[in-house]
Design a protein around this nucleic acid. Sequence first.
DNA 1: CGCAATGGTGTACGTCTGTACACCGAAACT
DNA 2: AGTTTCGGTGTACAGACGTACACCATTGCG
Lengths: 209, 209
Amino acid sequence: MTAATGETRGERKERTRRAILDAALDLCEDSSLVALSLRQVAKQVGVVPTAFYRHFDSIEALGLALVDESFVSLRAMLRDVRRGDPTFAAIVDRSVDVLVEHVRGQHQHFAFIVRERAAGPLSVREEIRRQIELFERELATDLDQLPGTDPWSAEDLRSLSKLIVGAMVSTAEALLNAPASHEKAIAETARTQLRMVLVGALNWRSRSS
Amino acid sequence: MTAATGETRGERKERTRRAILDAALDLCEDSSLVALSLRQVAKQVGVVPTAFYRHFDSIEALGLALVDESFVSLRAMLRDVRRGDPTFAAIVDRSVDVLVEHVRGQHQHFAFIVRERAAGPLSVREEIRRQIELFERELATDLDQLPGTDPWSAEDLRSLSKLIVGAMVSTAEALLNAPASHEKAIAETARTQLRMVLVGALNWRSRSS
DNA sequence: CGCAATGGTGTACGTCTGTACACCGAAACT
DNA sequence: AGTTTCGGTGTACAGACGTACACCATTGCG
């Protein structure tokens, strides 16, 4: 990291920071954060190991930063889904299309989340779960505003949104682990699943009612 | 690993092998196989590092052995589910009960699978996926024999079983990551989800029909 | 009985790890 | 202009890593 002209101090620091984040995302792509060493990252960035500490306290802290920026991708995705008319049929098709597109475009971020959600340092796992739970709650309030949701109790609503988020995570995993040629088939499966769930929900009578 | 009387050579070897498997299962419980060192395992077992090679070629091979024995737990679970009358309502309740019970009893095996499915050495990930796919196919043929499944195409059936397996995996994850006090709530959520899915499936008209 | 097979040991190596410390040069503040 | 701040460097060390090798003691087969 030697120089480059016409850059303010802060800009240069930010550039190195980005390089570290990218290197980490790259290096742990086929293992996990917990198997990633500070020295590997530093070498890939082209910086001496101790320079790492100028940006992060530890690999774990780096991980939390990656969680944050990965969820920016996810939130952008949700915005895309919410835009457009809220017919059930339209929602399903648009959701799946947007998911496929974002997984393709933000491959590394999605892979990171899916991996580190299960493996990964404790604090990273917790943060990812927290964020996903947040999604589930948002989805629940979205669903609540749709027509035909009267017979759903609050618990049913939560269960339903967990189910949908889970199915979406599974779909993302499938997309990440299959060659691009399977993309259309996976998308079709996801559409079928979403439709089935919606048919089930719309024919639902809460047990407690 | 010094001695113990009245043991055949093979018995002793098997005992050490088990100790290694257990140690590995234990040590990687809050990280991953990819962050597990042969020396850690050897130390925990109480054996010199090089002795490890008498049993496994590498940590990766150890991992494959752990996958095998973990899926024995899962298959035992499936047998329990299949036993009993095949009413839809009965299936839902029994499935969830059996899942909760097995996750509690085989905590380490389930946690191992859930973790290493996403992180973990490539061959381990592949093997886990292969086994889960096998489950999905089995579930599909089980479902096919139930009454009221006429309007499902083969693709619908696959999508449905993927959805159900996915929901079960999510439920297992939730059980693994939540305190025991949440167990009943998680089970109730899982029951609701399964029922919703079944309601959806039973009201289903295949698109291609 | 004797000899091969084998599970476990101990030493030894080169490599990689995290991190402490002293240092440098340019940007940024006064 | 002088001084501070700070991202990055280089050296250094103790510990953990995988693994090669020679060895030992017991089992178990002929």
